[in-house]
Every structure is written in C-alpha cells, then in structure tokens.
Design a protein around this nucleic acid. Structure first.
Length: 199
DNA sequence: TTCCCGATTTACT
DNA sequence: GTAAATCGGGAAA
C-alpha cells in the first residue's frame, strides 16, 4: 500500500536534495473524479531568493510568487507563455520561497484520462514528458495553485529512493536569463527513462 | 496604463 | 530549424 508523503517531507530545507528525492515518486491527482498517477521522472530545483532563475529571486514576493512563500507542502502553479500551466512543489518553511518544478512523469494509472485530456490515442512520451504537457495530462491548472499536497485533489505517494547511478544531474532548461545560475546542476532525471523532456 | 517577455509546445518551412 | 500561439506578471512611466 503506497503512502502519501507527509507534510514533514516538504519542510526539508535543502530544495536541491528534495528535487532529487522526488524522482521515482508518484504524482497523483483526483480531478473531477478522475484518478491519475504518474512516476516523476524529471525535476528542477529553484533555490529561493538567491537563485536568479527563480521567480522569487531578490525576494520578489508578489501576488503570483506569494504561493512560494507559503509553508512547504503546497502546489505552486503558474501560467507560462499564456498557454501552459507549470506545476511546482513548494518546500521549506513559511516565508522561504523554495520550489521544485516537476518537468516530466511516466503515466501508470488513469492513463485513459490523460489520453483524453491531451487528445491522444496512445501512450508515448508526448503525453507527459514536459512541464506543460504533464500538467495537462494530470488535469492540473491554476485553480490548484496553493492547494495542499497532503489533500485529496493532488498529492505525492512515496517510493524507494533511486540509486545515485540511476540519476542524471545536469543544468536547468529554459533559464538562460539567469546568467551564471543557469549553469547550476539543479536538474535531475531518471537515467534511461523515455519520459524526459530533453536529453 | 503601457510595454516587454516568459521555468513551453506544436506546427510549419 | 524557425515561428506562432496567447495572456498575465512585473517593471517602468
């Protein structure tokens, strides 16, 4: 019987470590009665106010980023390029804006719901290997911004930690604007997984 | 209030 | 490989 990750998991203070620990765990949603689960295959850490790639860089606490300042264990979801809903796991204590972007996952339950939401007919990497497509597949949108990750709409179930040898560590995607911080090794994905946004 | 542009995806050339 | 889609956040005025 899989267990839901407890609040304490999200209160950890090392967001880079959390990003790595989340690999292999199950991201689950129950939206409009449709249950869906997917194995997290790719994550990125956003390290608070000192990280130029983060929306909260320079302690930018605004209506949008205020979600990241909440106590760890809630969802930070924002609209990107006016089209895509990107899902993040908020961590650390209140007022410390840490977050982990979930960039890709492998569907394992409720696949029929994900296919329908994505308007696809078969399971392949285009279903959920990318932060925008993943959210669409799982039915995640901004109405879930600030939602508890220990509730009934969206949560994460535990799974054994992956071995170091099965994890690829590299730089984040699409954050060139962050100058030298774009070079930080804050992106993680499961080696040999087909459900990864870019290799 | 104006203006620029983004933690992306998809459809074209 | 290039470009369009599409809208709201955030800084400047």
């Amino acid at each position: 019987m899989p267990t839901k990750l407890p609040k304490s998991f999200y209160l950890q203070t090392d967001v880079v470590s959390i990003a790595k620990q989340l690999l292999g765990k199950l991201l689950c949603t129950n939206i409009e009665g449709q249950l869906a689960k997917a194995i997290i295959t790719e994550t990125e850490a956003y390290n608070g106010i000192i990280d130029k790639a983060s929306h909260a860089f320079g302690d930018r606490n605004t209506p949008r980023t205020s979600t990241m300042y909440m106590q760890g264990g809630v969802a930070y979801i924002y609209l990107c390029y006016g089209i895509h809903h990107l899902f993040n796991v908020v961590s650390h204590h209140k007022d410390i804006p840490h977050a982990v972007l979930i960039r890709a996952a492998e569907p394992i339950e409720g696949i029929e719901h994900m296919l329908e939401r994505r308007n696809r007919t078969k399971l392949d990497r285009t279903l959920s290997a990318g932060p925008g497509t993943l959210s669409q597949a799982l039915g995640i949108d901004r109405t879930l911004n600030g939602e508890s990750l220990t509730g009934k709409k969206i949560w994460i179930e535990d799974a054994p930690l992956l071995a170091e040898k099965d994890i690829i560590i590299t730089t984040r995607i699409g954050v060139d604007y962050a100058a030298e911080d774009a070079l930080l090794p804050y992106r993680f994905y499961i080696k040999n997984s087909k459900f990864v946004s870019r290799y």
